[in-house]
């Protein structure tokens, strides 16, 4: 299959998984945890590389999950020790990220892992690293990983839909009903971590934050139903990825930058034109009522 096809598919998978996960990040008011985790998974990936001596998908996923959950856990612990929540987040993720950066330059020194790549990603190289899967045939490694993660994300969201909905809306009631609120939080942070790790190769740590937060924030403006918000957010993610790719090809610029920029444009359009919460609707409403 063609080079462009793989890039578009990979980008769409990033948009879809991040868009779905992002809805709960927004609703739990933990959007910036995405920023923290997207940085600390670097440490997880580096440690996985040091242990296994190869850049393999599964080792990276496991390293990323551990790093993500460690981030969530450390932030929670510092917060319970009277450090402000946002400060706790800032301290934890910069420190873990810094350790990752130091390890890359001291103990790794490999072409596959460098800071530039980790921050910005390089989707154009993705079609060159293929693996062979039964039934599917040759598929880029990153794409296969993203497909796997998308399945995990969708299955988890379906399985724990009502628990995550309730712990996001009213954690006190959830706890009093016997739903393990903290466990659900860590499970969700694990899911954010795997999504981030899988998207890492394609769009990098900074852009994955855009893909996680912006489509979901846009979808929030269009609907009052959670399930529709999830579908819209995934859709916005895919559209932004594809449009972003073509914009990048057209003006010859960074693909991940262009994709992240497109999510911003989608948000701006939503912010102005959304019939429920958009600027224009808000201006018109009082007039309509008079």
């Amino acid at each position: 299959m063609s080079y462009t096809f793989w890039i578009l598919l990979t980008a769409s998978l990033v948009g879809l998984s991040c868009g779905i996960i992002g809805v709960f990040l927004i609703l739990r008011k933990t959007a910036m945890m995405a920023d923290a985790i997207s940085h600390t998974v670097l440490l997880g990936i580096v440690l996985a590389y040091i242990v296994t001596k190869e850049v393999s998908g599964m080792a990276m996923l496991i390293g990323g999950i551990l790093a993500g959950i460690a981030t969530a856990f450390l932030v929670q612990s510092l917060h319970s020790l009277q450090v402000q929540h946002d400060a706790a987040m800032g301290i934890v993720f910069t420190t873990l990220f810094a350790i990752g950066v130091i390890l890359i330059s001291t103990s790794v020194g490999n072409a596959h892992l460098d800071v530039q790549h980790a921050l910005m990603g390089e989707i154009t190289f993705i079609p060159f690293h293929t693996i062979t899967l039964p039934l599917i045939g040759d598929i880029p490694q990153a794409t296969a990983l993203l497909l796997f993660v998308l399945v995990v994300v969708i299955v988890s969201i379906i399985a724990f839909y009502k628990e995550w909905k309730l712990t996001s809306f009213d954690p006190a009631l959830a706890a009093s009903l016997g739903i393990p609120v903290l466990f659900m939080h860590y499970l969700f942070m694990g899911l954010v971590s795997v999504t981030t790790v899988a998207s890492f190769d394609a769009v990098g740590a900074i852009m994955v934050v855009a893909m996680l937060i912006t489509p979901a924030a846009s979808a929030y403006l269009w609907t009052d139903k959670l399930i529709i918000m999830i579908i819209l957010s995934g859709g916005f993610g895919v559209v932004s990825s594809i449009v972003g790719y073509y914009v990048a090809a057209w003006i010859d610029t960074s693909i991940s930058g262009s994709m992240a920029f497109t999510t911003g444009v989608v948000f701006l359009i939503s912010f102005i034109f959304s019939p429920k919460h958009g600027l224009i609707a808000k201006r018109l409403k009082p007039v309509g009522q008079m």
């Binding site: 909905k165 309730l166 809306f169 009213d170 739903i179 009052d224 959670l226």
Partner: peptide, 20 residues
């Protein structure tokens, strides 16, 4: 204590009482 802008309706909120 909760965010009333959460995307859900009244019936759904009441149904949450049954999640346990």
């Amino acid at each position: 204590s909760v965010d009333w802008d959460f995307p859900t309706d009244a019936l759904d909120v009441v149904t949450m009482g049954l999640y346990g």
